[in-house]
Design a binder for these strands. Structure first.
Lengths: 117, 117
DNA sequence: TAAATATACAACTAATCGGTTGTACGTTGT
DNA sequence: ACAACGTACAACCGATTAGTTGTATATTTA
């Protein structure tokens, strides 16, 4: 369960850790684009862009749909949201830390009320 | 400007694209931990953990503070939030796409009111 | 002062990554 | 039928990664 989740997190963050792939995500979230239409936008080979699309697809960040001879890529916003929620989980841990510090301060001011300001 | 931002995004996503580093982040967001205290938690050498901490520090996800002979690491929640906001930006592009689709539907139902359901 | 602890860093290795070129195959248009 | 287009995939290459071991340097503590 958690093992699979961590693998998925690895794939998601790794997929987003590349400029070209983040740029592809911007385009395919805004609308469908064929792989060759995407490839035309970057100064690299078609195969290189195809690999980037494959990385994003394996991570679940986009899906492909065949239309004739072209493959139309479309961004999956729920995958983007799942990454965001992982970050929110991290933030919650930090909130817990702050809450604990606040408790300490509350205890301190209750024990030594003359130290309040 | 954007060049630096993309480099920062590369570093942030790459830093989070590793289980051990995400786990370190959970611990240091919840509270301060020395590098050796962290190292004791994982089945790898001290040097390996030290490198992971260095990657997180370079990305700005944690800061270190010297206390005697130990180095206390503390998670930086604002860096975590900056990653979350990048994802929100991506999500906005998707919202734009949906808005455009809605406009098309509105135009269509206005032009062909008999096709409504 | 000497031993133990905590860190830093260099050098090495196997694996992965991001790119290339080349080949093959189905689909479309002439 | 055939040329052009869009895609898939394998093989290769240099750079980077995640790990290791070993050594050096402060800081405690006995």
């Amino acid at each position: 369960m958690t093992e699979i989740d961590e693998e998925r997190a690895d794939a998601l963050f790794h997929a987003l850790a590349d400029r070209t792939r983040r740029d592809i995500m911007r385009r395919v979230l805004a609308g469908e684009h064929s792989v060759s239409a995407l490839a035309a936008k970057y100064d690299m080979s078609f195969a290189a862009v195809q690999k980037h699309v494959a990385v994003l697809e394996k991570a679940g960040l986009l899906t492909k749909r065949r239309n004739g001879r072209e493959q139309l890529a479309s961004g999956d916003v729920t995958a983007v949201r799942s990454v965001a929620s992982m970050l929110t989980e991290l933030e919650q841990l930090w909130r817990g830390r702050i809450a604990r510090i606040d408790e300490l301060i509350a205890f301190d001011t209750a024990t030594h009320p003359d130290q309040e300001n």
